[in-house]
């Protein structure tokens, strides 16, 4: 604050045509204008549009549009048996993926947050799939998980296990997609946890140890609570991400077998861009929006109650 004040002339010049506050506000709006314009054009506008579309029956190919009220929602929620099957699949996917991902991430992070020879190597290895393109990852796993001649099953055969036809049986296919997706993404969450663990001051743990706390007690009463904010972020990101999964499904199973891996994001795409039911797909999109929103709000609320 020891700086010399700006020349009175400059101050007078500014003040003469705009107050400082108004000027700052104007500049701020200039700064945010690309983001706000983009938000309005590519997000807010489309969100309003999707509400309108969801009330129509609209075929992409014939380009005929007709207002049908809530028929699409009625169709999805009460008439089309596929819809609830798809919601169930999405739920199974999320319930399988989120805890598995988070537990694996935390376990790896606990093992790799310290300093020992090879720690950097392992971090690099576990993180490598994150920078591998998702398409490449899914394609390679599709090969590895082939029936009898697939590598995984040949490997299992050497120890006398007859592996299932992974991508051909609905439950195994779902498990396989969840597993490959977790392996692909867990490195990211691991790094977030490592960063959080390293930010925890050592003296908390040391103090607890002096009082004779076991490893588990240290984790349960010190580490875990301090990881709370990170856990929340990871949980929200991973949950939203699990509903967005598209490329893995598209490339590994195409929603099959027997619709066993047909999840919401893929179903919306199929309805909209394969069968050209724009109205129905829009209604599905809104339902998906609602589900994700509710889940996020619930997670945040639980967190708030706990702290």
């Amino acid at each position: 604050m020891g700086n010399p004040a700006p020349s009175t002339a400059a101050r007078a010049r500014r003040a003469s045509w705009l107050t400082l506050k108004a000027r700052e506000a104007m500049e701020a709006w200039l700064f945010v204008s690309p983001t706000v314009a983009g938000f309005l054009i590519f997000f807010a506008g489309p969100l309003v549009a999707v509400v309108w579309y969801s009330l129509t029956e609209w075929n992409l190919l014939t380009q005929q549009m007709k207002y049908v009220g809530l028929a699409n929602f009625r169709d999805a929620l009460f008439e089309n048996p596929d819809f609830w099957h798809v919601v169930r699949n999405s739920a199974v996917f999320a319930v399988g993926l989120v805890p598995f991902n988070m537990m694996l991430a935390l376990t790896l992070a606990l093992g790799l947050s310290g300093r020992f020879p090879g720690v950097i190597f392992f971090r690099t290895v576990f993180f490598a799939p994150v920078v591998t393109s998702a398409a490449a990852w899914a394609i390679v796993w599709k090969f590895l998980l082939q029936g009898e001649s697939g590598f995984v099953n040949q490997l299992l055969a050497t120890v006398g296990i007859a592996g299932p036809n992974w991508l051909r049986e609905p439950d195994w296919a779902m498990a396989a997609v969840i597993f490959t997706r977790v392996i692909k993404m867990v490195g990211l969450n691991m790094i977030l946890y490592i960063a959080a663990l390293q930010a925890i001051p050592r003296d908390y743990e040391e103090a607890a140890r002096l009082e004779g706390a076991t490893n588990w007690q240290v984790f349960r009463w010190i580490t875990w609570p301090l990881l709370g904010p990170t856990t929340l972020v990871i949980m929200v990101i991973t949950t939203i991400g699990s509903f967005k999964v598209f490329d893995h499904i598209y490339l590994m199973t195409g929603g099959g077998p027997e619709n066993g891996t047909l999840v919401l994001a893929f179903y919306i795409y199929e309805q909209g861009f394969k069968f050209f039911n724009v109205g129905y797909a829009s209604a599905l999109a809104l339902i998906m929006f609602a589900i994700v929103m509710v889940l996020t709000v619930v997670q945040l609320a639980i967190r708030r109650r706990d702290t």
Partner: peptide, 17 residues
């Protein structure tokens, strides 16, 4: 055709067990 094929596919999957 697109809808018919899509409706067939999951049921035909079940056939190939």
């Amino acid at each position: 055709s697109p809808q018919i094929l899509a409706a067939m596919k999951p049921r035909v999957d079940a056939l190939w067990r």
